[in-house]
C-alpha cells in the first residue's frame, strides 16, 4: 500500500506543480493571490472533512501555536506562485524543493541534530546543484536562450529577480520546516526554543491548523482580488489553479499515510522527494520547456541531493 500511496503523492505533487504553472500566466499580475484563493478553498474543505468526519479536535490555541510554521509555509508558497510567472517550472521546482538542505542545517545549528555523513553529502549536492543552476541560468547567452525557447509556450527573459522568488521560497519553506519540527517535538529541545514555542502539538491538529490558516489567507486574498482590485474570475483561467490546489491537498493526504508505514518510510520518502524530477518531465512534455544539458546536469545533482535528504529525513 505504501508504494501506491507514494506514487499517488508523487503524481499529485508534480501535477500540482504543473497546474500551478499553467495557472500562473505572466500577464496576470494577481495570479498568486488567485492561487492562494484556490488552494485555501480546497484546504478549507479538507480541514472541514478532518474536523467534522475525521474527528480531529481543533482550538484557537492550536491554530495560534502552529501559526509560525503555517505562516512560513503559506508565505513561501505565495512567493513560489509569484515566481512561476517569471521562470520555467523546470528551473523553479528543483530550487524550491531543496529547502530540505537548509532545514537540515537549521536543525543542526539550533536543535543539535547532527546529520550523518550521507546527509551532509545530500546537503552538499543540493547546495552545489542550486548554485550551479543559478550560474548556468545567469550566464546563458541571449541567443542560446532564444534558441531553446523556440518551441516553448512562454518566453522568459534572463533575470536575477526571476531566480530570487524560488530562492526565497526555499529559505522561507526551510524556516517553516524548522518551526514545524520544533512545534511537533516529542521531547524538549533544551534550548531557548522551548520558551519561544511553549505549546507542543500532535501532527493531526497541526495539519488542520495549517489548512485553516490557509483558508483564512484565501479569504483575505479573495477580498483583495474581488473586492479591492475588482478582478473577475473565469473557469478557463482559474480552472488550472483549482486543479493545482486539489492535487496539492491530495498529495499531502497521500504523503502522510505513505510515511505512516514506518517499515517502508525511507523508500516512500525517496520516491516522493523525487517529485520535482517528474515536474521537470511534465514541463518538458506539456509546457514544451527545453533546457540546456548544463541545466539538466545541475537539476540532476539537486534532485539526487533532495532524494538523499528525503530518505534520511524519514
Amino acid at each position: 500500500m505504501w508504494f501506491v500511496l507514494s506514487l499517488i503523492a508523487l503524481l499529485c505533487w508534480s501535477g500540482s506543480d504543473m497546474f500551478s504553472k499553467i495557472g500562473s500566466k505572466p500577464s496576470d499580475k494577481l495570479s498568486h493571490w488567485k492561487m492562494v484563493m484556490a488552494v485555501g478553498l480546497v484546504m478549507g474543505i479538507h480541514a472541514a472533512y478532518e474536523v467534522f468526519i475525521g474527528g480531529v479536535e481543533i482550538t484557537w490555541d492550536t491554530i495560534v501555536a502552529y501559526l509560525p510554521a503555517s505562516f512560513m509555509y503559506i508565505l513561501s508558497m505565495t512567493l513560489g506562485y509569484v515566481g512561476l510567472r517569471y521562470i520555467e517550472l523546470s528551473v523553479s521546482s528543483p530550487i524550491c524543493n531543496s529547502s530540505g538542505g537548509i532545514a537540515a542545517v537549521l536543525c543542526f545549528l539550533f536543535l543539535q541534530e547532527m546529520p550523518g555523513l550521507v546527509q551532509w553529502i545530500g546537503v552538499a549536492a543540493v547546495t552545489i546543484g542550486v548554485v550551479l543552476l543559478g550560474v548556468v541560468e545567469m550566464n546563458e547567452s541571449d541567443d542560446a536562450r532564444e534558441l531553446r525557447q523556440k518551441n516553448s509556450k512562454v518566453k522568459y527573459e534572463k533575470s536575477f529577480i526571476a531566480l530570487l522568488f524560488p530562492i526565497l521560497y526555499c529559505i522561507i519553506d526551510a524556516l517553516g520546516t524548522f518551526f514545524d519540527s520544533v512545534i511537533l517535538r516529542e521531547e524538549a529541545t533544551g534550548t531557548f526554543l522551548d520558551t519561544v514555542f511553549p505549546t507542543v502539538l500532535e501532527e493531526g491538529p497541526a495539519n488542520v491548523a495549517y489548512e485553516l490558516t490557509f483558508l483564512a489567507c484565501g479569504i483575505v486574498a479573495a477580498i483583495y482580488v474581488l473586492g479591492v482590485k475588482r478582478d473577475r474570475l473565469t473557469v478557463k483561467a482559474e480552472g488550472p489553479k483549482l486543479l493545482g490546489g486539489i492535487f496539492e491537498t491530495a498529495g499531502q493526504f497521500a504523503y502522510i499515510y505513505a510515511l505512516g508505514d514506518t517499515a517502508h518510510a525511507g523508500f516512500a520518502a525517496a520516491i516522493i522527494a523525487s517529485y520535482c524530477a517528474l515536474s521537470v518531465v511534465w514541463s518538458r512534455i506539456f509546457l514544451k520547456e527545453k533546457l540546456s544539458w548544463k541545466h539538466y546536469g545541475a537539476i540532476a545533482l539537486t534532485v539526487a541531493g533532495i532524494v538523499i535528504l528525503g530518505i534520511f529525513d524519514a
Binding site: L75, I161, L164, L168, I172
Partner: peptide, 12 residues
C-alpha cells in the same frame, strides 16, 4: 536590480 530586490524583500 538592487531596488527591485529591496521592493520584494521589504514587505516580506
Amino acid at each position: 536590480t538592487s531596488r527591485k530586490v529591496v521592493r520584494i524583500i521589504r514587505p516580506i
